[in-house]
Each structure stands twice: as structure tokens, then as C-alpha cells.
């Protein structure tokens, strides 16, 4: 990543990025308007959300759903859309629907 707030004299020529994989350091979570929330009790760990997430923001550990990567998650809602598991009352929202639901992002 270039030096934060580099002046035009310091910035890399033509915006070249000289380190591989540096997108990981760029916070896209600030773009989020809606925030996905997860019901850990009802999740079957089917990993369909992990397959569909376009920003690799579903973190899995030892074959089990672990957490959202809110540093990168843009809140697109695909995970909530593809989640196949229904709940009567969501652990976080208290509402009926799916294991992953979208909520308003608290600013």
C-alpha cells in the first residue's frame, strides 16, 4: 500500500501498486449500508454463503462458520439471500426469516 495520505510527489507513479495482495489492507467495510448478522445456534454450516460471498468475507475455521470479516464486507446481502436455513426468531434480530439477515448499519 502507498503511504497513507501521500502527497502527489510521494505517491507511486501512475498509481502503481508495488506489493502483491495489498487489497487486503484496504477497508471496504466503510461502504456498507446494511450489515449481515448471523444466528450461530441455528446455522448448519452448509457454507453456501462462503461459496457465494464475492468478497471472501465469510471466515471459516475447522470446517465451521466462524465470523463475518466486517473490515471487507460491503453489505451486498448475497449471503442473506442464498442462506437456505429458516429460523422462527433470529438470535440477533428476533425476527423470523433466515440464519443470515440484513440489518441497518449503525453509523
Amino acid at each position: 500500500m502507498p503511504k497513507p495520505n501521500a502527497s502527489w510527489k510521494e505517491a507511486n507513479i501512475a498509481g502503481l501498486v508495488l506489493e502483491p495482495g495489498s487489497a487486503a489492507e484496504y477497508e471496504t467495510g466503510t461502504w456498507r449500508v446494511q450489515r449481515p448478522v448471523h444466528d450461530a445456534d441455528k446455522c448448519t454450516h452448509c457454507m453456501i454463503c462462503w461459496v457465494y460471498c464475492p468478497d471472501s468475507s465469510i471466515i471459516v475455521k475447522d470446517g465451521r462458520w466462524k465470523e463475518f470479516d466486517y473490515f471487507h464486507c460491503k453489505g451486498c446481502g448475497i449471503c442473506a439471500s442464498v442462506c437456505p436455513v429458516k429460523v422462527e426468531a433470529h438470535q440477533v434480530t428476533g425476527k423470523p426469516g433466515k440464519v443470515i439477515q440484513m440489518t441497518d448499519e449503525k453509523k
Binding site: 501521500a6 502527489w8 505517491a11 501512475a14 502503481l16 501498486v17 506489493e19
Partner: peptide, 19 residues
């Protein structure tokens, strides 16, 4: 490894135009 022509938003585009 170098990335050419990357996404360049309001936080850096202006500096690159000045260059």
C-alpha cells in the same frame, strides 16, 4: 509483482493527475 492501472478513487486519483 506489480499492479498496473488499479482502482484509484477520490483519495489518490487527483494526486496521480497532478503527477
Amino acid at each position: 509483482p506489480t499492479t498496473f492501472g488499479a482502482w484509484d478513487l477520490y483519495d489518490y486519483y487527483f494526486e496521480h493527475k497532478r503527477q
